[in-house]
Amino acid sequence: MSALSRIAIVAAAAAFAAPLAAQDYSWKPDRPINIIVPWSAGGSTDQVTRVVAPILEEALGTEVVVVNQPGASGSTGTKAALDAPRDGYTWTANAIANNATYAVTGLIENTSIEDYHIYLHVANVPLVSVNADAPYQTFPELLDAMQNGSVTVGTAGVNSSGGMALAAIKESAEGDLAGARMITYDGGNPAVIAAASGEVQVTTQLAVEQTEMIRAGRLRALAVLSDTALEVEGIDPVPPITDFMPDFHVAADYFGVFIPVGAPQEVYDTVDQVWQDHVMNSEALKSYATDRGAVFAPSFGEGALEKAMPVVVSEACARVTRGEAVVDPSEIGIDCPAE
């Protein structure tokens, strides 16, 4: 079964799992809601948003449309959501670390996580995988090739989870991994397909984007950026990167949907309640997470921000360390720990 087929089945299950309850909420939308996914179809953000959208649609009693608008490491679609009328009908979706740090890298000026009401659903983990025909059988072998040879790595760009994963690996490696050459695509799915087809040798995109290709024998997973092994049905356990890099810093990579501030308060009050009533215990979302190698972790509001701040701080401050920051994180309320 293809990845998109699995997603369609899970999304259909979500639609039947949640009863129509629009009358229970103070906000009753009278037209479709658009969720802008700032990445291409089939990637991690797109996958999970298409599972969550039917849950929201059924609860709110209106159509929820997922709109793919990729470009510039997710900043093109994100800015489109910020520029849209603040009436509650245009949302966006992403990894929270992206929305919180676009200003740090200069991709979107004068923005921070305070521009959104936050609704998280899963945490994702990047995988280091190679094309099935690549000669690298272990993560140390791949590191050696990155240090002493030339290796192409497919990601969705420097600001994507895959791009940040590769940068973190380079930063933590004992030697210079100058041989790792990043090739960027419009989303995680195209980057993974490139690795599976042999267009590039490696990908560091998220597990949810890779599991189908690994099950099909097109990719071979060498390490997961976690401190515990990744265990997903149909795939051999993937060793944690801390087995090879004990000091590697791991922070859970939370994903969600975000509603720009400025809409009527009843919008946020309603979505808060919908999240509590229909997403926090969604069987469809749990099934998606289990099948694809994600962590089921819904939350919203201040609790969501508190949960996600470690990855926000980690990614923002890593930009400073790597010389990629054009705005100091402190200017958008992120304090980096003293070295």
Rank of each mutant, 00 (worst) to 15 (best):
M1Y: 14
A8N: 13
A11N: 07
A12Y: 07
Q23R: 14
Y25L: 08
W27V: 01
D30A: 10
R31K: 15
P32S: 05
P32Q: 08
I35E: 02
I36A: 02
W39S: 15
S40C: 05
T49A: 13
R50P: 11
V51F: 02
E57M: 11
E58M: 13
G71L: 05
S73T: 06
T78E: 09
L82V: 03
Y89V: 02
N94K: 05
A95I: 10
N98E: 07
V104D: 00
V104Q: 00
G106V: 00
S112C: 03
E114V: 06
Y119E: 11
L120W: 06
A123I: 01
V125A: 14
P126T: 07
N131S: 06
A132G: 04
D133H: 13
P135T: 12
L142K: 07
L142C: 03
D144N: 15
Q147M: 10
G149H: 11
T152P: 01
T152Q: 09
G157F: 02
A168D: 14
E171H: 14
A173N: 03
E174K: 13
D176V: 11
T184M: 08
T184A: 15
G187H: 02
P190M: 05
T203S: 13
A207L: 10
A207Y: 03
E209F: 05
Q210L: 07
M213K: 11
A216V: 07
G217N: 05
L219T: 06
L219A: 04
R220D: 08
L222T: 04
L222F: 04
L222A: 03
S226K: 12
T228S: 13
E231K: 14
V232W: 09
E233V: 10
D236W: 03
P239L: 03
D243E: 15
F244R: 05
A251N: 11
D253R: 09
D253N: 13
F255C: 09
F255Q: 12
F258W: 06
I259R: 09
V261H: 10
Q265E: 14
W275C: 11
W275A: 07
D277R: 00
M280E: 13
A289G: 10
R292E: 13
P298T: 11
L305I: 13
V313S: 04
V313M: 08
R319Y: 12
V320N: 01
